[in-house]
Lab assay of single mutants.
Amino acid sequence: KAKLLVLLYAFVATDADTICIGYHANNSTDTVDTILEKNVAVTHSVNLLEDSHNGKLCKLKGIAPLQLGKCNITGWLLGNPECDSLLPARSWSYIVETPNSENGACYPGDLIDYEELREQLSSVSSLERFEIFPKESSWPNHTFNGVTVSCSHRGKSSFYRNLLWLTKKGDSYPKLTNSYVNNKGKEVLVLWGVHHPSSSDEQQSLYSNGNAYVSVASSNYNRRFTPEIAARPKVRDQHGRMNYYWTLLEPGDTIIFEATGNLIAPWYAFALSRGFESGIITSNASMHECNTKCQTPQGAINSNLPFQNIHPVTIGECPKYVRSTKLRMVTGLRNIPSIQYRGLFGAIAGFIEGGWTGMIDGWYGYHHQNEQGSGYAADQKSTQNAINGITNKVNSVIEKMNTQFTAVGKEFNNLEKRMENLNKKVDDGFLDIWTYNAELLVLLENERTLDFHDLNVKNLYEKVKSQLKNNAKEIGNGCFEFYHKCDNECMESVRNGTYDYPKYSEESKLNR
């Protein structure tokens, strides 16, 4: 008799109507990190870190770059004969040098303040090359056809396309004075040089004057150069050297050249137009028929994500570079809930034993079982409120962090190594801060989002509990077992918050 009662009780308990509160689960393989956990499985997430590029040089917003090819900045601007293909260059979106560009200054020497000139050019998007001192009329008392084997072109001695090597005419090199007034309405880049012979005999042979000088002056520039005559090792078949100089001439300003020898005179100059998204990159990537809004030396990035880990040097509207390998923000729920887990921000989770793959029309909802059958029903209101809140948060985070910009490298010469090392340390410090901030932001927001979901499920549970009161009992896994019969209409009233407690209280009292 006792065995019969136990079996009867078990049958009745199993047959009781139930309603459970749960949440969506799926077959997603997404994982995120939080402050407290690593690799948390979630139903949905968004990636904030771009880690792919196309490996190509592309047009930037429809404008092609200027590819210097086998030449570098120095060779292009001075007019190395091997860089003749660059003479027609007028406009570009950015400038590309190759790491091993070999054609710079063909006659050995240095372009002074080269690093600063590169910085200036990094904001130039177009130029006009014009004859600042016409070759045939500007130097009537001097020979202007100086050439050298060091600047050979097609097997013949030649010289820079933008400079003139002035030497004596006959047996004399009379003092020369020439000036140019900038009437271009924009900055003009003027380049010139000073020749330093290897011996007094060479000085006399070329310029006749043993104590020659070169003077260059404008409103913002004033220097006097004296040739340094000295024996030097042979470089590119030359014992002599040429140093090259430049200045930016403001609109309306005048530049005056005065010399008694050794002047490498300007022939062509450049009127410059600035462009905020221009820059110089060093890259071996090849040019393709493609378009982008962000270019790196590795390749083009076409992404609206706020961060990238491809390269710190970028041109155009680019994500911020960070050292992170993963920045994924959760938008959905835990896919593998932890039992009795309390989140960092106070939300209680884990009283549900598992997510439901059968509930596909919402994030949170119900599963019921009664004599009429069983089924899932999503709670659309709480789901939609959660979707709206999380979507707004993700968009806000992306908008705040998605300050796209150009980031170019800084140039230092060989004598500025300590400054370069200090600059690298400062840049590394800023990069570490950006990386830390980005990672911390994602970790915190992921923790908040998961706790937010847990709290929403808990609130749904409490909503049902407050309606049923003692007409049902909690069975410990997020479910309630009714003390009365609850048909589909009754189940719907529980879900929509209109459950009639008094209607079922007498039946429940008897069954309790």
Rank of each mutant, 00 (worst) to 15 (best):
Y23W: 13
D15C: 08
S219T: 09
K135S: 12
I112K: 12
L78G: 01
H53P: 12
N100R: 12
N26D: 07
W139N: 00
I63Q: 14
L272W: 02
Y23H: 06
G75E: 10
E116N: 08
V46T: 09
V6P: 00
W139V: 07
S93F: 07
Y173C: 08
R236E: 01
P140Q: 15
C151M: 05
N162W: 07
W246H: 02
N178Q: 14
S179W: 13
T14M: 14
T43H: 06
S199T: 13
S125F: 11
G55L: 01
K168R: 14
Q204N: 10
A231Q: 09
D33H: 05
H142S: 14
K168F: 06
E202S: 05
S278A: 15
G155A: 14
S152M: 05
Y268D: 02
Q120E: 05
A212R: 12
Y173L: 03
H196W: 04
N243D: 06
S123H: 09
H44S: 15
E277M: 02
L77V: 14
F159H: 10
N178C: 04
N47M: 08
A217M: 09
N72H: 11
S152H: 00
G55R: 11
S125P: 00
D253S: 14
P233D: 00
I256H: 09
G240W: 01
R118G: 02
S200M: 09
G210S: 08
K156E: 15
P134Q: 12
D201I: 14
F159I: 04
T31K: 06
N222M: 05
N183V: 14
C106L: 02
Y23S: 03
A265S: 12
D30C: 04
I63M: 12
L60A: 02
V42N: 11
R224W: 08
T143P: 01
N80K: 11
Y213H: 14
N39M: 09
L49A: 09
P227I: 15
C71I: 08
N141M: 03
W267N: 14
N72S: 15
R236S: 12
S101I: 02
F276Y: 11
G193H: 00
N72I: 00
T148Y: 03
W139C: 06
P81S: 05
D110V: 05
N182C: 14
E202I: 09
L8Y: 14
Q67P: 09
S122A: 13
G69N: 11
G69L: 13
N72D: 14
R241P: 00
F276S: 12
N141D: 06
E187T: 12
A265T: 11
S200R: 10
E82L: 12
V214W: 06
L206R: 00
E37K: 06
N220M: 08
N178I: 09
S198F: 15
N26Q: 03
W76R: 03
S199R: 06
Q203W: 04
F276Q: 13
P140C: 13
H239I: 15
P99I: 13
N211K: 13
F257W: 13
A89I: 14
L189Q: 10
